[in-house]
Lab assay of single mutants.
Amino acid sequence: ENVVSAPMPGKVLRVLVRVGDRVRVGQGLLVLEAMKMENEIPSPRDGVVKRILVKEGEIVDTGQPLIELG
């Protein structure tokens, strides 16, 4: 699984990683606000951040690609 998608609609509050960062399974990639709750979106696997597909403040839909892992 190379693309991390939004599990719910919401607003991207914070991106916690940068392109080139090594991440571990379960590590927070970004914080999504949904229904006034902050939800940290975890990495599904170990890898390297290849691309960040959203910006802070952006509104996303369920299933929208957020981050690509390499």
Rank of each mutant, 00 (worst) to 15 (best):
N2P: 03
N2H: 04
N2G: 15
V3C: 01
V3D: 15
V3T: 14
V3S: 14
V3A: 13
V3L: 04
V4E: 13
S5P: 10
S5K: 03
A6R: 04
A6W: 10
P7S: 11
P9A: 04
P9I: 09
G10S: 09
G10P: 00
L13F: 12
R14E: 13
R14N: 11
R14A: 08
R14P: 12
V15S: 08
V15K: 04
V17T: 10
R18K: 12
R18D: 04
V19I: 08
V19K: 10
V19L: 07
G20E: 14
D21P: 02
V23N: 12
R24V: 05
R24D: 08
V25S: 12
V25M: 14
Q27A: 04
Q27R: 02
L29Q: 10
L29I: 07
L30H: 02
V31F: 04
V31H: 10
V31T: 12
V31K: 11
E33P: 12
E33A: 14
E33M: 06
E33Y: 10
A34I: 07
A34Q: 14
A34C: 00
M35C: 01
K36R: 13
M37I: 06
M37T: 09
E38A: 07
E38V: 07
E38F: 10
E38G: 10
E38T: 10
N39K: 12
N39C: 01
E40Y: 13
I41G: 02
P42S: 07
S43R: 00
S43C: 00
P44V: 13
R45K: 15
D46E: 07
G47N: 02
G47S: 08
G47H: 01
V48F: 03
V49H: 02
V49E: 00
V49I: 13
V49M: 11
V49P: 05
K50V: 14
K50H: 12
R51F: 15
I52Y: 06
K55R: 02
K55D: 11
E56G: 08
G57C: 01
E58N: 05
E58R: 12
I59A: 11
I59Q: 14
V60Q: 13
V60M: 10
V60P: 03
T62P: 07
T62I: 13
G63K: 05
G63W: 05
Q64S: 07
P65A: 06
I67R: 00
L69E: 11
G70R: 03
